[in-house]
Design a protein around this nucleic acid. Sequence first.
RNA 1: GCGCCCAUAGCUCAGCUGGAUAGAGCAUCGGACUUCUAAUCCGACGGUCGGAGGUUCGAAUCCUCCUGGGCGUGCCA
Length: 665
Amino acid sequence: MQVLALLQSRFRSALESCDCLSAVDDLANYAALIRPAGNPKFGDYQANCAMPLAKLVSGFNPRELAQQIVDHLRIDDLCDPPTIAGPGFINLRLADKFLNDHMVRMLDDPRCLVERAASPQKIIIDYSSPNVAKPMHVGHIRSTVIGDSLARVLRFLGHEVITDNHLGDWGTQFGIIIYGYKHFGDPETVSQNPVPELAKLYRIVHQLMGYQKSVAGLPKLKAEIEKLKAERAAAVAEAEQAEGKDAKKKRKLADAAGKKLSAAEAALRAAQESIAAVESDPVVGQQASAHPNINQAVLDETSKLHRGDAENLQLWNEFLPFCKDEIERVYDRLHVSFDHTYGESYYHPMLADVVEDLQANGLATESDGAICVFLDDFDAPMIIRKSDGAYLYATTDLATLRFRLKTFDPDEILYVVDTRQGEHFEKLFAVARLTGLDQVKLVHVNFGTVLGEDGRPMKTRSGSLIGLESLLDDAVDAAYQVVCDPDRLVKLEPPMDEAEQKSVAEAVGIGAIKYADLGHDRASDYRFNLAKMVALSGNTATYAQYSFARTVSILNRVGVDESDVSQRVQTDGINLNHPAERALALKLLQFDDALHSVYADYGPNHLVEYVYATAEAFSKFNDQCHVMNAESAEVQTTRLALVVLTGRVIRQALQLLGIDVVQRM
RNA sequence: GCGCCCAUAGCUCAGCUGGAUAGAGCAUCGGACUUCUAAUCCGACGGUCGGAGGUUCGAAUCCUCCUGGGCGUGCCA
């Protein structure tokens, strides 16, 4: 039941039958200007089309035109008679009968009146895509959680969704563990305990690489700092000499130089710390001096793997399943799964063809030894083969696109990837259009960065990225502290045993992280604040989960189940009388609209917003409309129906966000 | 240098192709549990929407300029 779409189609008919509007050709766009009312006193919805349309047709002021539209509007089966207000708003209030009838229908529909798409689309969603052999970190949250939620929503809307985890299983990180295995690994330990052992090898080599890079970069960095110091001093001196507008400009240059300087100094400190960390540890320090060319050596191992070296390929084949197990564990905990996991390695055999074909049709040319596609509107070309012959992720992405079109013939492909890769995707899509791969809708579903509380990209104190698993553990611990506070658990009967407490904390903790992530507009950065996310008050997953638990508890207290309620509704009907009942019913009916706005913007935040509004409407209802002590059996029936429906809608909505509910908390 | 994004209440954020008095959460202050879990509800406080112009019935939203931030920018992904 898409209420908005229904109202819009009625308005479209009305506009089309107004003689005075016959000259306007895009009436559907104007009919679409219907919004939920900004203020409940104006009704449930408002149509804003009269004002802009009055600009286009002579002879009517907006209010007169609004009257014309209302005269042509056939809507009395849905709404009370429309009213015209202000400069020409048409205010709509859904008829009580309409709401009552639809609550009855909703009770019979396990889909909560969400219709299936009339023309289902085949949609590939590419998300999560971590590098294996490398611990998942906070940066992987957004792609994983947003992509998973979009997949769930689009599937629920009746589309054919194909999810693909474009795993980074072929890059330098494999060179790292291969090198680590060969020089620091013990075959027996690795085979006994592969996942943590490989992670350990990765960390060892990664640290040594960082160390060597820091040592090598130190002189350059120091020279850079001296240079910047001189530049800033010169700029400051100039600024002091200059006057007026010129002085301002010079000061700005001096400030800019100062900023660059402090950035360089911070980089120097980081490098020095990384060096000190290695040198202060006798074992690691010894390893460092024993592997002086580790960076190049790692690249060599990677390159050998790509060239098909038997030993490295065998190690890759041996290690890859363990690396997948590692990330699989995180996915299990997040309840995320994929239809396909074609990693980058899968496309390796196709890359040469991609380059050759682009060269053959003249799009790719050689430049400085690299094979490049030069594109209008872009300064830098898309490089598809490096001068050393290696391929890049642009090449892989082109091969992936070809493969997907050939294999699945999708209508749409969504790339749920960091917004900083925007230019890469613009180029990729441009090349796709040039090569005729344009029969598919390609969308970069971009997202912003997760920031720490200081507003800087989230890092640990030592500067490394925060591991995803420890983050989840922290959230669950925090949830346990607040949710399983003995002072509030005493209210529950029978008492909650330790196992149930643990599972509630897991649902609340994981839910908190997902809810907070999905609740923000995906394109913007947001600050990660665990305490706030897990807090029991405000717009959090907890609030919604708690609302659901309350619906369960009310039904239990009254001693009815869903089928009892359905039976009672058959005899008593549903009659919404209290404003809080009506407001709740209206929210419940808008579920389908909320899901469609998720699709329209590829934005799960609309669903989060909807869940919150619905939970809030339920809290008000819960506060004002007692169920157990209702005035009459009929009133109780209506309220029971609302409780059942609220429970279903919130559970379903949270499920589509990938968030669990619990029966009580 | 060029390109993209951002600036809204003390803090964190909404604001849906221009719409009615700019909203919510947190924080602060004040009310409401002998009744289905007070993780709640009700109320108060709080904003010249970074600044200046412009477009029009109407601008946080569109255009121009300015200020302040972030990100990207030829062989990483």
